[in-house]
Amino acid sequence: MAAAAAGVGRLEEEALRRKERLKALREKTGRKVRDVDVCVLRSPRELRLRNYVPEDEDLKRRRVPQAKPVAVEEKVKEQLEAAKPEPVIEEVDLANLAPRKPDWDLKRDVSKKLEKLEKRTRRAIAELIRK
């Protein structure tokens, strides 16, 4: 705490010295002395007039030429093309939507063999009926 208070005290002293130097500099150049005139040493900003149309010749030189609007048609076209929705699928396969059962791969592999057995079973039943 004491170190922070000492730091603040030192900063205040430096600020007072800087104010005194500024005051002496203003008196030397002949400007009026103000207590809160801190921005004297800053570089003056150049005045640029964008919307105001001055009548004074000096101010007319500082006027910024009007900006021309940029053609955005191509950018808008690109964005519209990128935003186009993907084609909607009209037919929906319910087999793809339904979750698969854990034994679906076994049924797939055995289905061919079952078809052969089914044909043989039908023939055998037909023979028994004939007898």
Rank of each mutant, 00 (worst) to 15 (best):
A98K: 15
T29E: 08
L11K: 08
E91T: 05
R26F: 02
A126H: 08
A15L: 15
V53N: 13
E78H: 05
Y52V: 14
L59I: 09
E86D: 10
E118C: 07
R48A: 10
L16I: 10
K113R: 12
E12Q: 15
R45Q: 13
E12M: 12
V72S: 03
K101E: 13
R34H: 11
K60D: 01
I89K: 15
R50M: 11
V36M: 09
L117E: 11
G30N: 02
R10G: 01
K75S: 06
R42D: 15
E27W: 00
E78T: 07
V38F: 14
E86A: 15
W104F: 13
R17S: 05
L25M: 04
A3Q: 05
E55P: 00
P65K: 02
D93M: 03
L128A: 02
D37W: 01
Q66S: 07
R123L: 15
L22D: 05
V76I: 12
L94E: 15
Q79Y: 02
L128S: 04
G7H: 05
R45P: 00
L117R: 13
A5L: 13
L25I: 02
K28H: 07
D37T: 02
D56C: 11
L41P: 00
K101R: 13
V33C: 03
L22S: 00
V33A: 03
K113N: 02
R120W: 12
K28F: 04
A2N: 09
E74S: 05
S43M: 05
R61C: 08
L80H: 04
A98R: 14
P87H: 09
W104M: 07
S111M: 08
G7N: 08
G7Q: 07
T29K: 11
L25S: 05
V92T: 12
V8P: 00
V36G: 07
A82M: 07
K116D: 03
